[in-house]
Design a protein around this nucleic acid. Structure first.
Lengths: 149, 149
DNA sequence: CTGTATCCTCATAGATACTG
DNA sequence: CAGTATCTATGAGGATACAG
């Protein structure tokens, strides 16, 4: 709180920044009064999507290249058409995915990442890397917890 | 796939690395055959937690300093004891949170982040920043989607 | 204070059938 | 092919009561 901090560094840099857990704590401390747990909280809003069963898989399915509805379905075999449709619609509504209809016969519809959609992959990749770095430690912790008293 | 890439740079650096969405796409492409959608997939496993209703809020509640059970409860007023207890237990089991019982009377129990627990905040902060950068764009996209045909 | 046990409800996703 | 409509079932989470 009262630690001296050199302000001489580029303030884009995190050279002397507080550790991440304290950064986040402060971000949320300021926000709490108003809307942390409110349904409007944009962070919760996005976190809910990230954590939901299909959104991530659908985004990843579209990461490499645009795909048609049934292509995506084949990429994720155990998603129902209902859920795939709903997930894609939400992603389109949020502007992460673009939808193009080609009036061929039979009709074909192509889904692709938007510019904004591509940008999610940066933080997401960070998260996946954390998982890869940590999942051994987590596994060990679980084993230990489960075999304890 | 076959683009020339200078290997002269530090391979810790991402100077000439492919964009994140392609990185992730490849990570998962390799993994898909085995266990992408399997319940064992560690990424899905963690993502489920990140997206669940309370885990993030509890972690943030513990970010600044250790807290007792009822302190956390006051920090997150709308969580039930049942859910708080369950969330804390899961976090403890995963080794992200440490639990210390002090045999005072009445008993007091303190929860705090483990070393591993603190490390989650780096990727999480990235994600929160992405939300802050993007939520205007998302809001605009939604408004447009909702007022369209 | 720090939980657990039990019951109950409501939302979400799966299955199935149908349509442009 | 690309969806929507309807129905049902499962399970997460709230309420309440109780316990160490």
């Amino acid at each position: 709180m009262d630690r001296k901090r050199s302000k001489a560094m580029s303030d884009m840099e995190q050279a002397d920044a507080p550790p991440y857990h304290l950064q986040l704590a402060r971000m949320f401390a300021e926000r709490r009064k108003a809307d942390l747990d409110a349904p409007l909280c944009p962070v919760r809003d996005v976190l809910d999507r990230v954590g939901d069963k299909w959104t991530m898989l659908v985004l990843i399915a579209l990461a490499e290249r645009p795909r048609r509805f049934s292509e995506v379905n084949r990429t994720i075999p155990d998603i129902s058409k209902r859920m795939l449709s709903q997930t894609l619609r939400t992603l389109e509504r949020d502007g992460l995915v673009l939808r193009s209809v080609f009036p061929t016969n039979p009709p074909s519809v192509e889904y692709r990442l938007s510019e904004l959609g591509r940008t999610v992959f940066e933080p997401l990749t960070m998260l996946v890397r954390w998982v890869e770095r940590s999942h051994d430690a987590i596994g060990t912790a679980r084993k230990q917890y489960d075999t304890s008293p």
